[in-house]
Every structure is written in C-alpha cells, then in structure tokens.
Simulated assay, not measured.
Amino acid sequence: MRGAGHRRTRPRTLILAVLAEADGHLTADAVRERAVATSGMDPSTVYRTLALFERLQIVHTLTIGKRVTYGLADHPHAHTVCDGCARVTALRDAELGDLRTLVRRDLAGFAATGIVIRGRCAACRPAPDD
C-alpha cells in the first residue's frame, strides 16, 4: 500500500486479516460483518477499503451469479466455483498438477493471475444411476 501512496491504517490491516483468515472468498457483506463485529468500524469503511484493495490488486474478485466475492491476491492461483451452491474453493499448487504448464504453453505471452474452473461440487451433482 505504501508503494502506491496509501497508508497502512488499522481498518485496512483488520480487513486484510479478515480476508486472510477466511476459508475461501467472502462477499463484501461477510467482510463487513466480521470487521464490524471485531472492531465496530463503520461499514462504509469496509466497502471503500475493498474497492481500494481491488484497485491496488491486493484482492481479486470472483462474480458468482449476482454476488461479488473477494479473496487475497497474494499469489496466482485457481478456483473451483460450483454452479449449484456457488461455493468457491481455492486450489493449492499441488492440486493444480499440469494445469499451470498447459496455460504457459498454450497461451504464450499471456500472464495468468488466476484460473476459474466452473462445474458442480460433489454435494450438488446428481447421484450416478446404479
């Protein structure tokens, strides 16, 4: 933040902590609920801070249906998004396997900062016919 001319304030640090502790992406409302419950900060501060973090590329967003979710952009990574329940799961490096190599080879000159794989999670998939 400092490199971009912004101060590191207590509310900004708290919102970063909320995102870092989250199990996956959070909506702005979920970030607000957690931040306000912890510190009593003004809800508008949360929304302004998330917008700033997005401009500074500290967070990235995923739009799922009509909901925008936020996650830390601390490193390039992939997500799965369930089209049934909208659950977002971050895939770790070990789970990506050869996908990163395929992207580098097939998209020469393109610097991917993330990958989104859409489908249905195990809970939302219909049971196979026996």
Rank of each mutant, 00 (worst) to 15 (best):
M1V: 13
R2N: 08
G3H: 04
A4K: 13
G5L: 09
G5K: 02
H6I: 12
R7N: 12
R8V: 15
T9Y: 09
T9F: 09
R10N: 10
R10Y: 11
R10L: 07
R10C: 00
P11R: 03
R12Y: 04
R12L: 05
T13P: 00
I15Y: 01
L16I: 07
L16F: 11
L16H: 13
A20M: 08
A20L: 06
A22D: 04
A22Q: 03
A22T: 06
A22S: 08
D23I: 07
G24S: 05
G24W: 07
L26C: 13
L26K: 14
L26W: 08
T27K: 03
A30K: 13
A30V: 09
V31Q: 09
V31T: 11
A35S: 14
A35I: 00
A35L: 05
A35H: 04
V36F: 04
V36P: 06
A37Y: 05
T38A: 15
G40I: 15
G40V: 15
M41V: 14
M41H: 02
D42A: 12
P43S: 09
S44C: 02
T45A: 10
V46Y: 00
Y47P: 00
R48T: 05
R48N: 10
T49P: 00
L50D: 08
L52C: 08
L52E: 13
F53A: 06
F53Q: 05
F53G: 03
F53L: 06
E54M: 00
R55K: 15
L56V: 08
L56C: 11
L56T: 07
Q57F: 06
Q57D: 14
I58Q: 12
V59T: 13
H60G: 08
H60M: 08
T61I: 08
T61H: 06
L62E: 12
T63V: 12
T63L: 09
T63Y: 11
I64M: 05
I64Q: 03
G65A: 05
G65E: 09
G65S: 08
V68G: 07
V68N: 07
V68H: 12
V68F: 07
T69K: 10
T69M: 09
Y70V: 04
G71Y: 02
L72C: 03
A73M: 05
D74P: 00
H75I: 02
A78L: 06
A78V: 09
A78N: 07
H79Y: 15
H79T: 04
T80C: 04
V81Q: 08
C82M: 08
D83P: 11
C85E: 09
A86G: 02
R87Q: 14
A90I: 09
A90R: 15
A90G: 13
L91H: 14
D93C: 07
D93P: 14
A94M: 11
E95A: 11
L96V: 12
L99V: 12
T101P: 00
T101V: 11
L102F: 08
V103D: 00
R104V: 07
R104W: 01
R105P: 07
A108R: 10
F110H: 10
A111S: 13
A112D: 09
A112K: 02
T113K: 02
T113R: 03
G114N: 07
G114D: 03
I115F: 04
I115M: 14
V116T: 13
I117D: 06
I117H: 05
R118W: 01
G119S: 01
R120H: 14
R120Q: 14
A123M: 05
A123L: 11
R125H: 03
P126N: 06
P126E: 07
P126R: 02
A127W: 06
D129R: 13
D129T: 07
D130G: 02
